[in-house]
Design a protein around this nucleic acid. Sequence first.
DNA 1: AATTAGCACTCAGTAACAAAGAGTGCTAAC
DNA 2: GTTAGCACTCTTTGTTACTGAGTGCTAATT
Lengths: 343, 343
Amino acid sequence: MLTDRQLLIFQVIVDDFIQTAQPVGSRTLSKKEEVSFSSATIRNEMADLEELGFIEKTHTSSGRIPSEKGYRYYVDHLLSPQKLNQYDIHKVQSIFAERIYELEKIVQKSAKILSELTNYTSIVLGPAVRDNKLKKIQIVPLNKETAIAIIITDTGHVENRMFHLPENIDAGDLEKVVNILNDRLSGAPLESLNNKLYKEVAVLLRHHINNYDLMLNSIADTIKIPTYDKLFFGGKTNMLSQPEFHDIEKVKNLMNMIEQEEGIYDLIRKNKAGINIKIGRENNNSAMENCSLITASYSIGTEQLGTIAILGPTRMEYSRVISLLNYISADLSAVLSKLYQNS
Amino acid sequence: MLTDRQLLIFQVIVDDFIQTAQPVGSRTLSKKEEVSFSSATIRNEMADLEELGFIEKTHTSSGRIPSEKGYRYYVDHLLSPQKLNQYDIHKVQSIFAERIYELEKIVQKSAKILSELTNYTSIVLGPAVRDNKLKKIQIVPLNKETAIAIIITDTGHVENRMFHLPENIDAGDLEKVVNILNDRLSGAPLESLNNKLYKEVAVLLRHHINNYDLMLNSIADTIKIPTYDKLFFGGKTNMLSQPEFHDIEKVKNLMNMIEQEEGIYDLIRKNKAGINIKIGRENNNSAMENCSLITASYSIGTEQLGTIAILGPTRMEYSRVISLLNYISADLSAVLSKLYQNS
DNA sequence: AATTAGCACTCAGTAACAAAGAGTGCTAAC
DNA sequence: GTTAGCACTCTTTGTTACTGAGTGCTAATT
């Protein structure tokens, strides 16, 4: 649909704008090595490209900038994977340099490195706890009234919550309860715990302790810990250095959205495996009008675990970011698989 | 040292500037009800106040704004405690409305409410885990190589860390270890654990299990979890609405500092009980040149637990903020004491 | 028929200048 | 001791003019 020359010109416009953040004019283009036509020719082509909706002007006599549709086309058809340099690779490797066992730590470090390498904001959706299986559940009484329940999953994730002890329950009872719980529930996915609790455990508890219903509710409460997977951020303030965010209002909107977390969570969550790119208003979020979000998933074996993402201006180095995300998510998946697959 | 009239004028200047963020001129002042002198008189007084260093001009013919020294004087001598209104009190009470058992949750909610009521940024230094006493320590093996250690304190705080298991250790050994640890260490303050471990526990372990030294190191590592007390924030972006932060560079500096957390930690940590006020450069931090930090401590009984703080522009509603902090910290202390004193 | 040179035109950005408004400091009158 | 009055300063606002980068269109060139 586009001629080769239009394609070339379009690509050079996008590349130049991504670098400089300035509207690109016909003269600037004609002086580039890759472009061998006169500025007049380019002007004609640009008029066409504008008519097609790929580029736009900021005012009647300005140079052109890519439109959202333009970025979309660029991303879908013109992107050539960028090779990472030694430094990048080295930096990424450093995530796994120390021997760390905690998933969260690795994930957090990934976020940090990713933001440092890109100068954008990185977001990592932590390992989905939902799919973890219960390793062990423990209850530690603190005093007569309160106890603390601790849930440990097969990946080593620990959740805990305090709860109110029913009156007249003694240490022996508590031990019985814990034994029953572990007996019946360990190995089960966290998601299914609540169900199982009422279907299988309730009956048993009823036989062994009095006040079983109170206890049951406390446990149920404790078990359905809101396993909203955690979000980790890197370089939250990097966006402030982008020229498109010299406007305080825009910054405020964006920062607010980042602080809320819920909005981000929704944006990141509903992505399929592999690389996903959302440009500007494709994100359906007014605070992100000038932003693009690129996500990639990481996994253990075939099981999708979480998501890493980069939030930057629509004028983003797509090629580089995608390469980096691909690289990190692959590494992350590999290392995590090795660590946790045979657990 | 200041005459009554100077005092009055100074106070009105500060109050006005806090409200409007605009330099205050002699005519503006003379039109106020509280002030009954002519603008010329006021000009003379203002010249004196400036010479004394309490106020300053932004340019030769501008109105006056309070200097840092001025704010300091204002805070030390002129502050009249502001009464909180119904709405404020209601909001603060709502922190404790739900029955929550976890310290952290309460603290986090306090930060949120505090920032909403002030429109500044609130910072809460969470309960000091350092002083907690060990309730129970548990070790749960995940697979042949790794296990997870869980430390529970008397206040219900839970810390956990994964570690590498020495080879050739079996379930029986592990149980022995855990028993010894609990036997010897429970009730001891977290701070002292490391010491006790090497002095008292090491010998015992040596007798009961082989490879005891490896085990010992793993445990020591686990125990000295960096109990940096957690920081909670509220209204991180509120500062963006303050007119003094229309300059992106300032915002960037401040936000970076907030994101780092370490700097904040230092600033908040080293404060004595009660209300502390640091104005502008008194904070010894270039990013906080235009900010004031007001801190208050909360405690259980006589034991200082943590700190709540408000970060705002030097042009801050000191009176209101102090009243709020006093009120919240008292409430916080009361509720926490009631909950945890007899544990 | 495609390309390019040339030209009139548009618009953002900058600088220079004037006028208005808010403020000051100082002096002299009250 | 207080205040009215005035000259002066500096910011802010608006006007005007100029420049430079860019465009679209037409006519000449290849």
